[in-house]
Simulated scan of single mutants.
Amino acid sequence: MNALEAAKIAQAALEDKLGQDIRVLDLQGLSNIADCFVIASGNNVNHLRTMADEVEQKLFQQGIKMHHSEGYSVATWILLDFGNLLVHLFNKEQREFYGLDHVWSDAKDV
């Protein structure tokens, strides 16, 4: 399964958990970090953790294992690393502060 297919699964998992302002960015040809980012916002710590758990579970069910995660304990910005797919889950303040949507504005929305 390629990164864009995995991103669609992550997007659906986030939609199921009422993630907000979900964006799937195709970074192929723009970055050697990953082929795809999924960026979403949540309302609070519990919401962000629930979203992260759902993404991890849905991708695991498809045979995609998470390599690494960061930020779960504080849950203002949770990063889930699936290799060529990175999932960024933010509270609204952190999303605005870091501005990944703007940093990667050259990326295509999928």
Rank of each mutant, 00 (worst) to 15 (best):
M1R: 13
N2I: 07
A6Q: 15
A7K: 10
A7C: 09
A7H: 08
A7P: 11
K8I: 09
I9H: 13
Q11T: 10
L14D: 05
E15G: 04
E15H: 08
L18Y: 14
L18I: 11
G19D: 04
G19M: 03
D21S: 09
D21L: 01
D21G: 03
D21P: 02
I22S: 04
R23Q: 08
L25G: 00
L25Q: 01
D26T: 08
D26G: 05
D26H: 11
L27M: 04
L27T: 01
Q28F: 03
S31G: 02
N32T: 14
I33H: 02
D35V: 03
D35S: 10
C36M: 05
F37D: 00
F37E: 00
V38M: 01
V38E: 04
S41K: 14
N43F: 07
N43W: 07
N44P: 14
V45R: 15
V45G: 03
V45C: 07
V45P: 12
H47W: 11
R49K: 15
M51F: 09
M51G: 06
A52V: 04
A52I: 04
E54M: 10
V55W: 12
V55I: 12
K58G: 08
L59D: 13
L59R: 15
F60M: 11
F60K: 15
F60R: 15
G63W: 13
I64R: 12
K65D: 05
M66K: 14
M66V: 10
M66T: 06
M66E: 08
H67F: 12
H68P: 04
S69Q: 13
S69K: 14
G71H: 08
A75T: 09
T76M: 06
T76V: 07
I78A: 05
L79A: 03
L80P: 03
F82Y: 11
F82V: 01
N84T: 04
V87W: 07
F90R: 06
N91R: 15
E93C: 01
E93S: 07
Q94C: 05
R95T: 03
E96P: 00
E96V: 06
E96T: 08
F97V: 09
Y98D: 04
G99D: 11
L100H: 02
D101F: 02
W104R: 00
S105A: 08
A107G: 01
A107K: 05
A107Q: 00
D109T: 13
D109E: 14
V110N: 07
V110E: 10
